[in-house]
Design a protein around this nucleic acid. Structure first.
Lengths: 347, 347
DNA sequence: CAACATCCTGGGAGCGCTCCCATTGCTCTG
DNA sequence: CAGAGCAATGGGAGCGCTCCCAGGATGTTG
């Protein structure tokens, strides 16, 4: 007893182990382990004794030890490629984070946040992932040719994308209905009688941006309006790009009477330029954005935009991932979330 | 050999271990470990052989095993109490995250994100922290009486706060110069000849909010203006609160000619109400916010506000924490970051 | 050339847990 | 009442690593 006592108090602040609990409860390690993990095959009596001992000692399982033997990590990574300062300027990401965190909070899964900006950090991430240090990966804002995603597929790590790479995305993903949202936005403009509707696209190596462009095109078609190459400008979702492209469009197509931007930020940039150019919004030029970020409520005038349920997207992603971790399978799943046109004063 | 071979291929996708590397390199485990950890006392020759073997096998150390023996976790937690949807609406948090992540990316520290909203999640966090599952904790947006912080102190986990709890905060913290920022803002208003300057405060159980109020008070004093109780309204940093309080202030003090709000969001809400009330900004009522969030650039008119270096704050927090983890000590450190008045059109 | 530092190196012990199997003490059958 | 069947239990083995110490090789000194 004194030896055991010695061992346990050798370092004063040592946390209690399974062994210590077992000893106090007068049972074996196995039984304590079963109780802790809610495994069956424990008598009510034993369970009660063990639970009392756990409470008394304030026992908390050592996760590392558990991971070492089970090779589960009880952690998932949320990867955000954050090349363009977008994390801060676009609440989209913050909302994804919230959704993911809230869905995870009922679990005892930990959320690892990994921001990837530089090539070096990509490299590190690759090593990291091949080290199997998480049970699964969530990835948002993927570009079509992202090698990290291929790596994910190769090592067979459960993964869910926020935004697919193409229509035939093999991995599980959660996607907003980009096409439908854009379509509704542009249809709204067309119904107002606008006939020279321009669009500012996102980066076209992202499927989301391409789908929004498709929605634009399809709505034009349905409205019997021609698709004019010169009314399409390429942006990258950022406000600066929105402003820059708007300037170009105004120069090339001075008679445009509406703009559909693939992000609120770009729409905000465009509105700034339009105002500077003396165009009244929405009278002379109507503007519709995409995202329904807080910015949209504060532009002048408040912006009509397409709401995408970002937080719900995060939640759905986490849910899919948890399922995939629990029951790995070859078949993947998709979730499409509906978008919604929010009418304000800019269109 | 065949036995060893069996062991290694039992599960085909087993990742290589230290042992495997040692075997391939023809050295002992100890030597490989030393190489991996950059420890001294390895001949150049041995190092070279081992490095080649590591590369060949694509060896990545098993973190759990390492944690188990060293009881370092190589992870820090960033705790964000997120009662009020603020994570998404205030880019402040996103910028903190960016700062922290970027400072950590040179290290091989992992970043765990913990959002705490409900009492239950607080409980879970407490368990979590007493489980020593991270090497250190970063905590932002702390309220004065937060029991979690006391817990942190008690268990002696390295911790850095973003925003202190009081002027005599014992823990390490990084704080913006709230007082100075508020002071500069209100002085600016006073110098414009404004004499009925109202303020909308943050939640006064946060030191940051109190300091901003102090700065307001001090600037009034210096300008020879009286401190009028009725010109002070209590908010909670949110836009809704800003609007609500502004309405009350207008009712009680119709002749006010300026408002200093302790956050951009509240300022935005206030501006909305002022506009609705037909007050011209800044001619009749000047408005200054605090944060310099993206919203400030998009209000009508663009908002004069106090810039606080949020990302730098995150970076500084991470830096302090890393130091504290590397060299634990009883003495804690403080960093105060300067703020800066950004002049736009609202004041 | 003996005696002793100094530098490298290999590998045992052990971190705290889960997995699994042998063992125990029952109850239930024929 | 013997034997089978079952639920509950204890504890050995081992996960992959770091720590540390004994021991070999090499160099240095009087």
């Amino acid at each position: 007893m004194s030896q055991v006592g010695d061992k346990q108090t050798r370092r004063g602040q040592d946390r209690p182990t399974l062994e210590a609990v077992a000893q106090l409860a007068g049972v074996g390690r196995g039984t304590v382990s079963r109780v802790v993990n809610g495994a069956p095959g424990v008598s009510d009596q034993a369970r009660a004794v063990v639970e009392r001992a756990i409470a008394e000692l304030g026992y908390v399982p050592n996760r590392a030890a558990r991971t070492l033997v089970t090779s589960r990590t009880d952690a998932v990574a949320l990867v955000i490629p954050e090349t363009e300062t977008r994390l801060a300027s676009e609440p989209f990401f913050a909302e994804i984070i919230r959704g993911v965190a809230s869905e995870l909070s009922d679990t005892d899964m930990q959320l690892l946040l990994i921001l990837v900006r530089t090539a070096q950090e990509r490299e590190r991430l690759a090593t990291y992932l091949s080290g199997h240090r998480v049970d699964g990966v969530l990835m948002v804002s993927v570009h079509s040719e992202d090698p990290i995603v291929d790596l994910l597929e190769r090592i067979g790590l459960p993964a869910v994308l926020g935004g697919r790479r193409s229509e035939l995305e093999p991995l599980s993903y959660v996607n907003p209905d980009n096409l439908g949202g854009a379509w509704a936005a542009v249809r709204h403009l067309a119904r107002q009688g606008r006939t020279r509707i321009a669009t500012i696209t996102g980066p076209l190596d992202m499927e989301g941006a391409r789908s929004r462009l498709d929605g634009y095109r399809r709505a034009l078609e349905e409205a019997g309006l021609p698709f004019v190459e010169e009314l399409v400008g390429n942006g990258d979702f950022s406000e600066e790009a929105g402003a820059r492209v708007m300037r170009q469009l105004l120069l090339a197509q001075p008679d445009l009477d509406a703009v559909f931007a693939a992000s609120d930020l770009m729409a905000a940039g465009a509105m700034r330029v339009l105002r500077q150019a003396g165009r009244r919004i929405p009278d002379e030029v109507a503007v519709v954005g995409f995202d329904d970020s807080p910015v949209a409520r504060h532009t002048d005038p408040p912006m009509t935009t397409v709401r995408q349920p970002s937080e719900e997207m995060g939640r759905a992603m986490a849910r899919l991932l948890l399922e995939e971790i629990a029951a790995p399978s070859r078949t993947h799943r998709q979730v499409i979330l509906t978008t919604e046109l929010v009418l304000r004063d800019s269109a």
